[in-house]
Every structure is written in structure tokens, then in C-alpha cells.
Design a protein around this nucleic acid. Structure first.
Lengths: 225, 225
DNA sequence: GTCTGTTTGAAACATACGTTTGACTCACAT
DNA sequence: ATGTGAGTCAAACGTATGTTTCAAACAGAC
């Protein structure tokens, strides 16, 4: 081959293995042997294992955040000054994810699992990297959410966003779901689109749940969701 | 000391470190030095690192599943034949968790994070262990959920349960939430009870969201949550 | 062809891991 | 007092990890 595709082969193998097994549990030797590449290539091309992890995320996230910005632009233009609704905002996000050009049929689900792992595993360096690199589309999404749920207090909204993120990342990242998706590659049963179509109404309903509830045991009134 | 408390010291240290860092990322040397115990003590008392992980879960889950069964018994007795509502069922679960006798002030949140990690990290042995040991209260909870949401199809219910589990495990297991809780040990702001009080209405609302929705981009009608 | 900078290759590096070993301590029953 | 068995300890074991090294292979410019 005239041009080296070593870098891409490493990224492909790493993405898949990280999604299957987590970061710490995946060794460079697994990655390089799956990629059919010399062990030293990772440190040569990326510098370190952590930098490779960053590169895996960057390869997906950089085009995705551009797509997302466009989707938000279009949404805001369509709404002509009025703030977009919660459903519109959530759909803009999921559609951007689903429409991303993918290397294989289940690119988003693999990447969703990676995002879930990034949040869950104590990879401090990864969190810092993601916050530094992609703070802009993230805070823009947060702003849209705020305008779409003006009835919520800041602290309620904070927690409900946590819940949404959890339901999404966890579902997409659970091995069961992933393997369901992989099993039915041909799209007959559970595509990522279909999961998203089930998830968005769930999230929207939860986000707009009624306020205040009695905790049964203590009969204390608590500001709730 | 007359009686050895080595076993408990190891369990305490392991529980905390696993919750902070995950299973693979926590070495036996960290655990034994935190517990101020000899390195060999883990293999002497538990047999292996995996068996130690099982013991950490068993110490919490065994009394918890008993508490949970009692709560379900009481709930069903209170309902006199009628199936308990969704809110009642969810509250029975969270109350059992919250009321568990705890070794320290944030026992449940630590354990919730462990459960989330168990689901997320690819610890096959752990999943098998949990399924074998605690299948009964789990399937009983599932049955209650089914009776509380008769309007849902089985597949809708399956996915929404995934979403609930995700929102719960992820929230409780995210480092931010955990550290928020740890920071405010004295309970002024974010206790586990308060998070649960915010979470349950969110989950109940999502679980009972309306059916069917148009996917904006394709204009295809999709059975949705 | 020869030179030059980039990329690969096999091997070794130092370090950390889970586990095992065998000598030692010590309470306690005999 | 003495033997026994459970528990502790420091040290070592074998293995796996991320990283480094340095020679060989290769591409393109001259």
C-alpha cells in the first residue's frame, strides 16, 4: 500500500475493543493484534494509550459536534425567535446522532457505550479532555433545555438532566442492548433509531413530570423533580 | 484484639475503593494497605479477588433482598388483592434501599455506584453471581411492574425498565453525584433520599408516557415507549 | 543510485498485578 | 507445658502491562 492506514486500523480496533471491554481492561496488545499492526505503532502514532483513547473519541465527536451545531442552527431558524420545545430539542440531538456518517452499521451504539464508559469509569483524563474540547455544543444544548423547561428550578433541571443522560447512556451502553443490536444487524428488530424513538418520549415525559410529592414513609414534603 | 476483624476491614476498604475506582482499576495492594492488613489476607480469607468482589455485594444484597421481600409483602397486604400502583411499587423499592441499616451515612449511594459498575463493566463473573443469588426479589419486582403498567406492551415495558434502571444506576453511580453526596455529608443538600424523591416521579412519568410518535425526519410512525 | 525522513519490526525494559509460599505468632484445649 | 490450628507476615513467583529502543524497510526528492 502506498499510504499507511495503520492509524485508522488502530482506531477501528481500539474503538471496538474499548466498547466491548472498557478502557483499562483493553490492552495495547489486544488492540494491535486485532488491528494487525505492530505493538509499538500505538506509541509511535499516538504517544500513549491515553492519547489513543482521546483520538478514538475525537474521531467521532469532532464531526458530530459540527453536525449538532448545524441541527441546532436549523432548529432555531425554524422557530423564528420562539424557544424550541423540549421534544424538538431532544429530537435534534438524537437525529444528529443517528444521521452521522458511520463506518459501520452500529457506529452510534458503539459510541454511546464509549460515552457511558467515559462517564462511569474513573478516567479523569478523558473527562477533562471531553470538557475542554467539546464544551460549546454541550452548553448550547443545556441552554436549549433551559428555555424548553422554564417551569423547572435550576436544581430540579440539573437532576433531571442527570436522569436523562443516565437513561440514555446506560441503555445504549449496556451489553444487553448492544448485543441485541449486534444480533439483529439486519435491522429487523432493535435499531438504534427505534431505541431512540422509544427513549425520547420517555425522557420528555420524565422531564416534564409534576412537581412536589410526599415521601410516603416520613410524610415530609419534598421538592421533587 | 481477641477476635480478628480483618475480614470486615478488607470488605470496608474494598467497598469504598471499588466504588471510587471500579473493579479492575482497584488492586489488592490498594485494598490491603487501606485496610491496614497484609496483602495475603485477601487470598487467605476470600480465595481470590473475584470472590472478594462477590463478598462485597453479598454483604449488602443479602439483607437488602430480605428487607425488600418484606416491603413487597407489606405492600401487597395493604392493597388487598388489587395490584399496587407504579408509584407504590417504586417507593417500596427506594424505601427499602434507604432504610437499610448502614455502616456509614452514604452506604446506599456507594452501593448504587457498585451496582452501576457491575452492569457497566464487563465483569461476567459478577453478573452471573448476582443473577444466581438474587433472582427471586428481582423477578418479583418485575412482576409488580407488569401489573402496575398493564397498558404497556411487553417490549415497551422492557425498554422503559431499561431506561429506569439506567437513570437510577447512572445517577447514583456518577462520580459527580457521589462526590456531591460525599461533600455534603451532613445532609444539608443532596441526600440519597432527596435524589430518590426527585428520581421516582421522573421514572413514573416516563414509564407512563404517551404512546406512538412521529419520527420527525422520516415521518414514519413508530411504536414509541 | 543515493540520500533523508518517516514508518515498521522484534525484542527488551521497568513496573504492577494476582497469587503462592513457608516461616512465624499466639490463643486455647489438652 | 505443650501441641494444634487459625491467622499474619515478608518475600517471592509468574504473568501481563505500557513504554522504549534500535535496526531494518520503505517512500519520495535529488
Amino acid at each position: 500500500m502506498a499510504q499507511s492506514d495503520t492509524v485508522d486500523r488502530i482506531l477501528d480496533a481500539a474503538e471496538e475493543l474499548f466498547a466491548e471491554r472498557g478502557f483499562a481492561e483493553t490492552s495495547l496488545r489486544m488492540i494491535t493484534s486485532k488491528a494487525k499492526v505492530n505493538l509499538a505503532a500505538v506509541n509511535y502514532h499516538f504517544g500513549s494509550k491515553n492519547a489513543l483513547i482521546h483520538a478514538v473519541f475525537g474521531r467521532f465527536l469532532t464531526p458530530f459536534s459540527a453536525t449538532l451545531e448545524d441541527a441546532f442552527d436549523e432548529l432555531e431558524a425554524r422557530c423564528e425567535g420562539k424557544p424550541p420545545t423540549l421534544n424538538q430539542t431532544l429530537w435534534a440531538l438524537t437525529e444528529s446522532a443517528v444521521r452521522m456518517p458511520q463506518r459501520n452499521e452500529m457506529g452510534i451504539s458503539i459510541f454511546m457505550r464509549l460515552l457511558g464508559l467515559a462517564y462511569t469509569q474513573s478516567q479523569g483524563h478523558l473527562r477533562k479532555f471531553l470538557e475542554q474540547e467539546y464544551s460549546q455544543p454541550f452548553s448550547r444544548f443545556m441552554h436549549l433545555l433551559k428555555e424548553a423547561t422554564p417551569q423547572l428550578s435550576a436544581v430540579d433541571r440539573y437532576w433531571r438532566i442527570q436522569f436523562m443522560l443516565g437513561a440514555t447512556a446506560f441503555t445504549m451502553s449496556s451489553n444487553e442492548a448492544l448485543q441485541d443490536i449486534l444480533r439483529n444487524k439486519l435491522g429487523v428488530e432493535t435499531t438504534v433509531q427505534e431505541i431512540a424513538a422509544r427513549l425520547v418520549p420517555f425522557l420528555a415525559a420524565g422531564m416534564q413530570a409534576q412537581d412536589a410529592l410526599l415521601i410516603p414513609s416520613t410524610n415530609q414534603k419534598v421538592p421533587v423533580a
